[in-house]
Amino acid sequence: MLPHLDAAHNLARWLARSAPDAEDIVQESYLRAFRFFEGYHGGDSRSWLLTVVRNTFLTWRKREERSLANVPLDEERHGIAPAPSAADSEGEAEALRGCIEALPPEFREVLILREFEELPYREIAEIASLPTGTVMSRLSRARQRLEDCVRKKVAAR
């Protein structure tokens, strides 16, 4: 049994937007958690692990950006922005997925932690090293962007 592996993987997958990268990040996160557990001061172990996953993702992204210095657009590399014709046949889940993935990472992470893990703002604030007020405004803006994006996709059908 590995605690919180699904939550860790879900967060990593949404942040990295790639299945193999997410698995690398999760594996590295558990090793880090294992080695540096003295950073764990009690409290909710899921939040703590998710913090480790998030930090591992940030390190991973920095490394990626350095090695891909000449490919500036994340979106191009991952093929996020779908061709307009694809939107017609998109299902609801696919539209949501595309719109969440298109959010900037700082919006995406608060949305994932809130909607999927249903964490209180206070814990999201700890994980993302943000003031609680910023979590509140970011989450609100993330939802607003998501709403606009999904409506646009639906209208394009």
Binding site: H9, N10, Y30, E92, E115
Partner: peptide, 27 residues
């Protein structure tokens, strides 16, 4: 409504078994 829709319809990426095994092995 949108919040419920995201929770119900957007994918929750559970960890695949092979990841479970590889994390175990690494630990």
């Amino acid at each position: 409504a949108r919040r419920e829709q995201v929770r119900a319809a957007a994918p929750y990426y559970r960890a695949p078994d092979r990841l479970r095994h590889s994390v175990h092995a690494a630990l």
